[in-house]
Design a protein around this nucleic acid. Structure first.
Lengths: 139, 139
DNA sequence: GTAACTGCAAAATATTTGCATCCTT
DNA sequence: AAGGATGCAAATATTTTGCAGTTAC
């Protein structure tokens, strides 16, 4: 795990610091998307609020994490898949937001179907957010 | 136009006030989605910032407008179609964000295709945001 | 006339910036 | 040692709340 974290940082040409290691670890362990607030909470004892802002920003720039659009317009961040590169995200997968437990997960397996756009329109990136009830919350 | 605006407000059981008429008119004329900031700019001479917040909030509650999720996580508001009701939005259409001119439009005509979710997952609402170049900006 | 709406002031939050100090390479 | 990263303080920006005065019905 520690290896994995360092490898990701090195690959993005980032120096390996306490806050970066820690925040990256939080994302890996969480498995689902996190709001800035969530990250701040989990690190409040250790890092300054500003450091969290700057770390998330750098992770975004390097393509380590990406934002997920939500209807509630909370800013959510999630780990990118390996094939994300700096400045070019391939996060064309589906995000599922559970309305019960609130967890947001990336459904990497499900492919977004093709869409027929009107003449002249050119799609570059497609984001799909599904709201509903997840398997855990369904009884 | 004035008739249309009053009809919408009446239908939602809202009293017809200057700010509501005005902000609703801005949305109808804009044709595309607007950020809070946009609305505030267009009304700054006439209304207080707080009034804009409260008006947008009421419009949301009554289902007159809805938010659009964007990857940039700007909060965007757009008019709902007629079939939106209070507390129950049927805005399962596609939103197109032009990366050139920045305009966000609702593509009401295009239907979102069915998605096969993993077992146990239950979809309630689906949002789809397509980023690209719109017909106007394409040369 | 009454209930609801608005503006103003101010509180509460969230985000950004500058700079001195500390850490990674 | 040098450049970049962090913490702290403070500047900005955003959103919410309370209350007194005004307006719609």
């Amino acid at each position: 795990m520690e290896d994995q974290i360092i490898k990701i940082l090195r690959k993005s040409q980032l120096s390996v610091t306490e806050s970066r290691r820690n925040i990256l670890e939080i994302f890996i362990q969480a498995g689902s998307a996190l709001a800035h607030h969530d990250v701040e909470e989990k690190t409040s004892e250790r890092f300054d609020r500003v450091t969290v802002y700057r770390t998330l920003q750098v992770f975004m720039e390097k393509g380590i994490i990406h934002t997920i659009p939500t209807t509630e317009n909370a800013v959510l961040y999630a780990l990118c898949k390996d094939d994300c590169e700096e400045g070019h995200h391939h996060d064309n997968h589906i995000h599922f937001v559970c309305e019960d437990c609130g967890a947001t997960t990336c459904m990497d397996d499900i492919h977004i179907p093709e869409i027929k756009l009107p003449l002249g329109y050119n799609a570059l990136q497609i984001n799909m957010v599904v709201n509903g009830i997840c398997a855990k919350c369904k009884k």
